[in-house]
Amino acid sequence: MHLPHFEITEPRTLDDALLVLSDHEDRIMIKAGGTALIPAMRLGLANPDRVLNISTISDMDKIDRHRDNCISIGANSSLFQVRQSSIIKENFPALVDAVKSISSPSLHHSSSIAGNICQDCRCIYYNQSLTWRALRSKCFKAAGKTCHAVSNGNKCSAVYRGDLAPVLISMSASVVLASFKGKREIPLSQFFKSNGIWPNTLGPAEILTEVVIPIPKSNLKVTFEKVRIRSSLDYAIATGAVSVTTDSEGTCTDCKIVLGALGPGPIESFEAEKIIVGTIPDLAICKRAAKEVINKIHPVANTESTPEHRIELAEFIVVRCLCKALGIGGGD
């Protein structure tokens, strides 16, 4: 099926891109690798008049040390670059695990890190062909007034299924957003607004230019787990990342537990984290934290798996991530 007609702009510099973006705010869409936008256009889910191809901007695909004890990953860095980078492998092995779990390796050449973070929420009632969707009334995500996944639902329940956001949030990463007014850096956790219609707070005249991750101290451990139906091409039905810092006695001094693919944005469970912090965690404490996590998630029937199954998976993922991070046996 042919793509709908659009114009394309291929800027060489960030300033040129921001100029075009501010001139065409209404009907322009940003394309990096294109692995999300092109299929969405083919399904009629995106129909821009103009596409801004930011992959042509030079110097936005660098991975290097940045300011004080941080690594900067340029927005256009491909997933292949991220997983091959020695600086990433050395400092953030859990990020490499998360990247390797995405789609299949051959697609890592075209997918970018910023595109993965900025991906839209998905729903089995929305990510369908025009013909399929025409047989139902328009849902909230398609500017309609109903939710097909939740009877009498009053908001969109589409699911954010990006794999990198949970692990990056667990590592306290931030993102740099550029506009004509300048650049602002915000914690990645604040980038998401938990809204199925559009999951992030990127402004219409803004471009995500880099991801900044603090270099971890030696006593910080980060782990990542993901479950999907087919490991070559499906999106996650549940994913999670945990970071834990322990002191020399084995007491946990800091902990982040972040889940993905279970709601309209990454979900951090502060209550579960409190259960871990201040203890010398054992399997029982990890299981108690995982039980707490499931109070925070409310999946609905809009993926390839049932909500009940995804709640069980979330619990399993948290226990496994915690046990791996803390070196505790029995997490499987």
Binding site: I8, E10, G34, T35, I38, P39, N53, S55, F80, S104, S106, L107, H109, S110
Partner: peptide, 21 residues
């Protein structure tokens, strides 16, 4: 993956790659 081609030696899906790129 049926439409895979090599671009500068790396595999890309030609169905998701614009010719102008």
């Amino acid at each position: 993956g049926a439409c895979t081609v090599l671009i500068d030696g790396r595999p890309f899906r030609s169905c998701m790659t614009l010719a102008v790129e």
